[in-house]
């Protein structure tokens, strides 16, 4: 019974991952992509946790723990490195598109 529930949760998380992936691929702005990556990180934590229970070996939560701890580093890095830029490279700017 519980096995089926774990499996169903895994599927649901995978579905959410797929949707987040679509958002990351489609864009349109860099912030959308960043948000998708962030969300993907959380879903990875959940998938790894539930997968441990699905296979009956939940001692590997350390991997989920490290994602929970360090995942926001990516967001910080982006904000930090592209903060001061006048034309943030992370943008879909119409002007930049026209240049080509």
């Amino acid at each position: 019974m519980l096995e089926a529930i774990y499996g169903a949760s895994c599927l649901a998380i995978l579905a959410v991952m797929g949707l987040a992936l679509l958002r990351a691929v489609l864009g349109p702005s860099a912030f959308d992509r960043l948000m998708a990556v962030n969300m993907f990180g959380t879903k990875t934590v959940l998938l790894i946790s539930v997968f441990g229970f699905l296979t009956g070996r939940p001692d590997f939560l350390d991997i989920a723990l490290i994602y929970a701890l360090v995942n926001f580093l990516g967001t910080i890095a982006v904000l930090r490195f592209f903060e001061g830029r006048k034309t943030p490279a992370c943008y879909d700017e119409p002007a930049e598109e026209q240049k080509e």
Partner: peptide, 13 residues
């Protein structure tokens, strides 16, 4: 940790 970090990064974003 999730409940601390994810709202933080959402806020920062």
């Amino acid at each position: 940790f999730l409940l601390i970090t994810s709202p933080t990064s959402t806020h920062a974003l």
